[in-house]
């Protein structure tokens, strides 16, 4: 019987105040086991205070081949950055 454990992605919050960050992946039969395995594999030295696991098949990723069109709309909008606006030198702290 071929009964392979599915792949899970692991996200760890290293301390309160920080976001969960992708740490890697692992195989587990279910979510509970994925959490316990993630604890053993990725937090053996107190690297985390909170773990998320999500089965890899549920992640939808953008395709790097389409990066040109996909991210292009943000590229020519320099007016979204503060440096676009000219201010007199006298104005401090703005």
């Amino acid at each position: 019987m071929k009964n392979n454990w599915p792949l899970w992605e692991v996200f760890v919050r290293s301390k309160n105040g920080l976001e969960h960050r992708h740490f890697g992946s692992l195989h587990a039969a279910d979510a509970e086991m994925a959490l316990e395995n993630a604890r053993d594999v990725y937090t053996r030295r107190n690297e985390g205070v909170s773990i998320w696991v999500v089965e890899s098949k549920h992640i939808t990723a953008s395709n790097p081949d389409d990066n040109g069109e996909f991210f292009e709309p943000a590229q020519d909008k320099v007016y979204r950055h503060p440096t676009f606006y000219d201010l007199p030198d006298e104005v401090k702290h703005m």
Binding site: M1, N3, W5, A29, D30, M33
Partner: peptide, 13 residues
């Protein structure tokens, strides 16, 4: 063991 874990996961689901 691996098979049993999968069977258990399926049952829970």
């Amino acid at each position: 063991v691996r098979d049993a874990a999968m069977a258990y996961a399926k049952k829970q689901e």
